[in-house]
């Protein structure tokens, strides 16, 4: 079972985001980056399927040279090799254009399975995987919380809303978008980190036709969300004083205790 895992690098969850001068995106210069959370689970699930059914796990990431850190980490955790779709401004492509570039990069690999996280932690469009499945002509399932794969068939458990689930069976090759929490993510071992240095990382460049195609949607403005409520901030930086004040407010003002 040969599996390609798509992994996106995004701003670190705890990073303080600063909006750029043009108010069209954030300042990326001094940011720290990490892998988008659900993509980490997609890799873990791919490694588990490979342990059961043999084959190869290929990680594919798109972006400038800094995404090499995501690739290296995936190789250290156990991916066999990597494809890096290189470009400096690819982050602003629409999900359709992103999926087109990824389709171009992995089509000839003829994978049995393609895994992605269900949505990225930056744009959060939640579409790239599904569009990619359409472009590659693959059946897909989204928000997958369990994978039951054998050489003969692929059965996956999908999460529905409000605590409901549903199993789907489909032929391979297929594409799955993986939900966070599907399993516990392994750490890279020292041996894995050493082995990663010898693994192949192939760089490819997306075709101009994809990158230069006029975007059908674009971000006009980025700003801090409007507050829907007037929040009373208590303690003025002193958490303990805030707690004393809060207990009083809950008692005398909100009257909930």
């Amino acid at each position: 079972m040969n599996i390609i895992v798509l992994m996106k690098q995004v701003a670190n969850k705890d990073a303080i985001l600063r909006i750029n001068k043009e108010a069209t995106w954030i300042e990326e210069g001094d940011l720290s980056f990490e892998v988008s959370e659900s993509d980490g689970y997609a890799l873990e699930e791919a490694l588990r399927v490979r342990e059961k059914l043999q084959g190869e796990v290929v990680v594919c990431s798109m972006g400038p040279q800094r995404v090499k850190s995501v690739i290296k980490d995936a190789l250290a955790r156990g991916a066999d090799r990597a494809i890096h779709v290189v470009g400096d401004n690819l982050g602003h492509l629409s999900p359709y254009a992103t999926a087109s570039a990824l389709a171009e990069a992995i089509r000839d690999e003829k994978p049995d399975l393609v895994f992605t996280g269900l949505q990225s932690d930056d744009y959060g469009y939640g579409q790239t995987g599904v569009i990619l499945a359409e472009l590659l002509g693959l059946p897909h399932a989204t928000i997958v919380i369990e994978v039951d794969a054998s050489a003969e068939r692929l059965r996956v458990k999908r999460e529905l809303e409000s605590g409901w689930y549903q199993w789907y069976t489909m032929p391979t090759p297929a594409l799955l978008t993986i939900q966070s929490g599907i399993s516990q993510i392994r750490y890279a071992t020292l041996k894995g980190i050493m082995a990663a240095k010898k693994k192949e990382v192939k760089e490819v460049t997306p075709s101009a036709e994809i990158v230069d195609r006029p975007a059908h949607q674009r971000i006009a403005r980025v700003y801090l969300p409007q507050k829907s409520k007037q929040t009373q901030l208590l303690g003025n930086g002193d958490a303990k004083a805030g707690a004393v004040e809060l207990a009083q407010k809950l008692h005398t003002e909100a009257r909930v205790i």
Binding site: L233, L234, G235, K249, L250, A254
Partner: peptide, 9 residues
């Protein structure tokens, strides 16, 4: 954004 009371700390 949706809290009535907040403690930053």
């Amino acid at each position: 954004d949706i809290a009535d009371y907040g403690i930053v700390g």
